[in-house]
Design a protein around this nucleic acid. Structure first.
Lengths: 247, 247
DNA sequence: CGCCTTTTTGACATTGGTCAAGAGAAGTGG
DNA sequence: CCACTTCTCTTGACCAATGTCAAAAAGGCG
């Protein structure tokens, strides 16, 4: 009884409950029964929203939790020795951040909000404990990691076999698809990241990104104005993305 | 009693038991108690050794098991639509193959033996079932996947920020380190893969691989004769590998 | 409104790919 | 065991894609 009240109160004040979260069908609790979802819900910690530029966690910090993005977006950046930073990932709502920290027990990169962003913190030890008795949750966790592995392989393919044009086309079609799955327009969206971030992520110089965006525009593939993007010819963009650079 | 006999017999005939496997300290059963290891052992299936060029499994085949490499080596190759093949990974003894198939329930690439190779087959449903009651095993499984994620990020960094020389240097130092961890010489080893495989993996043309190997040789970094490699100046190679290409 | 950051554009340099050809290795069958 | 075929690897000449440097234009924020 008290529990329910607290639960209700929390949901009103902070909208923290998975049951009422519009992302639950894409997120970890996917496929959990009501009872299980309640338990899962109970281990989640709310965080104050991150402001643009704020870090969710920093590289080499001890690993303790994974995070589900609730709204906004983030980038993961790794610094290595002398080298420049490398942007290894962008995270959108419902995606899980921090899974690559499990192995070495610290986060292998700094994760920074690209805009105002809210996340659910999921302490990993408690998640694992829960997973012990919930095969569904366990499966979902495996799947999340496995999916990330597959995405990484796709990225490796992009980096080693695609031309700059194809990389940009892939970037746009992939974003478009991710927005679509989350119920947003796949044709019209706002980039939360700078050109420099895109270039870093795709392994291209900023200037190249800028030039190719210009070319896409004159080719009638997209209309870009600052960070506002309108995809005009998705099929053509998809075709381009799926071609492969000579080599 | 009968169990023990069968167990013994199996171990003599096929050397399948984890307890007697020299890799157990690097492999999944790492950190399992004796009892747990016996149970783990029981779910493992032996396979006939693969001959050079034989496939362990093919792309898009239904996912059912992960595999631990026992001896030899393999490569994973993904074909995508019209594009050329992309070599996404090499696997050495004690490494786990197939984890990226969990999510979509089929293998995202074909895995082929580079030489005579033996593997342990671990049916995934049984592994997961066991993981339910063995937190150690569960942890080990998470760690394996997480490590692969980290390795992938390193690879992405290599592909997007390193010059051809730095890539080759990384390739050699990484191989060297992997051999060292497995108790082999870090200075002298045999490449089981062709130059074309190395090039494909590193995102370089075969010719470039060949040329740079030649240059490394005249610089006194390595001595290469066919697939026989002697690392002459590991520190220098490491330095080179850790530099980062302009950009 | 002015400063600072982000983006665009231009000129030029460099890395690494492509094509072509030849030298070695290695597997195959007589 | 050798001759033949077929890969695999190396080398050279040339070229295209993309990076670098420089500077101007456009945005965004206090």
């Amino acid at each position: 009884m008290a529990d329910t009240l607290i639960g209700r109160r929390r949901s009103i004040l902070q909208e923290t409950r998975c049951q009422t979260c519009s992302l639950s069908s894409l997120c970890l609790p996917l496929a959990l029964e009501v009872d299980d979802m309640d338990q899962f819900d109970a281990i989640i910690r709310r965080r104050a929203p991150l402001k643009k530029g704020e870090a969710l966690f920093r590289q080499d910090t001890p690993f303790s939790s994974v995070f589900a993005v609730r709204s906004g977006s983030l980038k993961q950046v790794t610094t290595e020795g002398s080298g420049e930073d490398q942007l290894t990932n962008f995270y959108l709502p419902s995606e899980l951040v921090g899974l690559d920290g499990i192995d070495e027990q610290h986060y292998p990169g700094t994760v920074v909000a690209l805009e105002t962003t809210t996340v659910c913190e999921i302490p990993f030890d408690r998640l694992d404990h829960l997973a012990e008795s919930m095969p569904e949750l366990r499966g979902q966790l495996y799947r999340s990691m496995s999916k990330e592995l597959r995405d990484d392989r796709r990225m490796m393919r992009l980096l080693s076999r695609k031309t700059a044009d194809q990389r940009l086309a892939s970037f746009f079609t992939s974003l478009s698809e991710r927005f679509r799955r989350r119920g947003y327009s796949p044709y019209s969206f706002r980039l939360s990241m700078a050109r420099a971030d895109i270039g870093n992520y795709l392994g291209l110089a900023v200037e190249t990104v800028s030039r190719i965006l210009g070319r896409f525009q004159t080719q009638g593939l997209v209309a870009v104005s600052g960070r506002e993007v309108n995809i005009l010819d998705l099929p053509a963009l998809t075709r381009l993305a799926e071609e492969e650079g000579a080599h």
